[in-house]
Amino acid sequence: MDQALGWWGVPLAIAAGTLRGSAPFLFVSLGECLTEKSGKINLGLEGTLLIGAMSAYAIAYLTGSPWLGVITAGVAGMMLGVIHGWLSQQPRVNDVAVGIAMIIFGSGIAFFLGKPFIQPSAPPLPALQFGAWSNLPQVQSALQISPLFLLGVAIAPLMQWFFRSTRWGLYIRAVGDSPDAAKAMGISIFKVRMLCIVAGSFLAGIGGAYLSLYYPGSWNERISGGQGLMAVALVIFARWRPMQCLYASLLFGGAQAIGPALQSVGIDSYYYLFNASPYILTLLIMILTCSPKRTLNGAPGALGQ
């Protein structure tokens, strides 16, 4: 208990922060990846994340079962997804605009209905202990991992495989890359996109449940702090590949811990800038790795049209 880790605490805190904090990024970015692969953007996942967080907390509190809360969060996310999927596929309606309106609408509904659930304490999701081998309490705590996070980590390669090797994955890519060809194949563009958006919103809703039921583990109106919007941007950064979404989410989850961890060992200036480090880092990586010569690899052809 008394052991202070000193400087070793910084990498440990970042590693622990990665394991704790990256799941919302992961779920939202996987959901957005699925959505964008079908050729539509859903910026509204910030609103979906909030709806998910609120409904999960509310249901977990009312029924006493956090897992029921997780399911509800997914279903609530799907409802927003249906609105987005239907609206953004109307002629002349821009999906980015619908997304921004959905952020406002979704967060409005979440805040409106969530008022009575700020005070009470809902039962949190259980965690798996992977740190029993260590006698350091810090390591034990860092290796407490939510099964929900492991689920997200498992979904990433599955989704990668799904896109690459299944017929449904091919349909989605076809719809996203060249809708005309897809139509010629006899695929309903509307249905495929709707399904992708709804499934993507389901994942984002689950991400919200992770926020309110596991980490930081409570419901209030500032709970997301823009994570949903950031996760949507991560998908472009990850070049629409689910595995890279996983890596990017881990990077962002870990980066959230940098500022506090550095302060706790005595680097106590420039913390605003340290806290902005994930954004600066992402921008630098993009500047270094992008090239004007080729369009982004993996960018769905119909995106933004």
Partner: peptide, 26 residues
Amino acid sequence: TQVIFTGDWALPVREAEATNSMADQG
């Protein structure tokens, strides 16, 4: 007393991180 400034009045994730890193530091 170790102080950690989060930088704003309501940042739940960073507040949780700050508390965790304090616990890690004993």
